[in-house]
């Protein structure tokens, strides 16, 4: 009884330390249990809310598991054709340069069918944020091989494991775009532990700042899990991701703005 009374004392508005962002709608996420899409949606919403950007944000969602992102985020959102989100976002930003524009794309969308749009938007240095969810598989269509599927990894279209001689090598899009002069901030993050989530959120926050300053394309890869596609429990999938995905897709910053730009940013923050 003592405990129950104690709890009542704690659960008060003034003691609130975490609640989901008000930019998350009441509609339950359509994602499978444990999927990193939900966590990534959450932190994007948190950053936009904390930066007070909701009225000035236009999101672009892809074809794939997150095609219904507009059901879950209380923002103006355009749903793009498969792979074309960077082209759609290019026009939005060029026509409304004062808005915060981001795309949200999976590995099939961004690294296969949308390679051209991704490379060229980054090469032009479009002032947009591209959030790239890489779980090494096509989740929506039922677990087929993606360009990012690891060597030897099984999928419904590589049932004996990815044979790189026959199917090609897993594609490191993030390394590719980091080489382009148009990108200003390229980083690889994850959202499977509290520390990782906090870091990923910080990265999104940085990207918001860089976009405000018109510094070029920000590209954030989130290495994520697909428990259903990988046929694992969520906890197992995160462990597998750490042991296998991180070995090939190393987390960390690939490109950060030059010192002077970063200094300018720090000054502005103060």
């Amino acid at each position: 009884m003592k405990t129950a009374e104690g709890l009542k004392d704690i659960i008060k508005p003034e003691n609130l330390v975490y609640r989901k962002s008000s930019l998350i709608t009441d509609k339950p996420f359509s994602y499978c249990p444990g999927c990193g899409h939900g966590t990534t949606h959450r932190i994007i919403a948190e950053v936009i809310e904390e930066e007070n950007l909701a009225e000035n944000t236009i999101g672009v969602c892809p074809v794939g598991c997150s095609v219904l992102m507009y059901d879950f985020l209380d923002l103006d959102i355009q749903q793009a054709a498969h792979g074309r989100a960077p082209a759609v976002a290019t026009a939005i930003k060029r026509l409304m340069p004062e808005k915060f524009v981001f795309t949200y794309q999976g590995d099939g969308d961004l690294a296969a069918i949308g390679t051209s749009e991704t490379i060229h938007a980054c090469n032009r240095g479009e002032n947009i944020l591209i959030v790239f969810i890489n779980n090494g598989i096509y989740g929506m269509t039922g677990g087929q091989m993606a360009p990012t599927t690891l060597e030897g990894m099984k999928s419904s279209t590589s049932p004996y494991g990815r044979d790189v001689k026959m199917m090609g090598n897993p594609l490191k899009m993030t390394e590719l775009v980091a080489m382009l002069p148009g990108t200003c901030y390229v980083t690889r993050q994850s959202v499977h532990t509290p520390a990782a989530v906090r870091k990923a959120k910080k990265a999104i926050k940085k990207a918001v700042g860089y976009q405000k300053k018109g510094m070029g394309t920000c590209f954030i890869e989130i290495v994520s899990n697909c428990p259903s596609g990988w046929k694992m429990t969520p906890v197992e999938s995160n462990k597998w991701m750490e042991e296998n995905m991180f070995a090939y897709y190393k987390p960390g910053d690939l490109k950060v703005p030059a010192e002077s730009d970063a200094d300018a940013e720090n000054k502005n923050e103060q």
């Binding site: 672009v60 355009q78 793009a80 082209a87 290019t90 026009a91 939005i92 060029r94 409304m96």
Partner: peptide, 9 residues
Amino acid sequence: NMVYGGAGC
């Protein structure tokens, strides 16, 4: 697709 994005605005 740029037309789509711009028209959507």
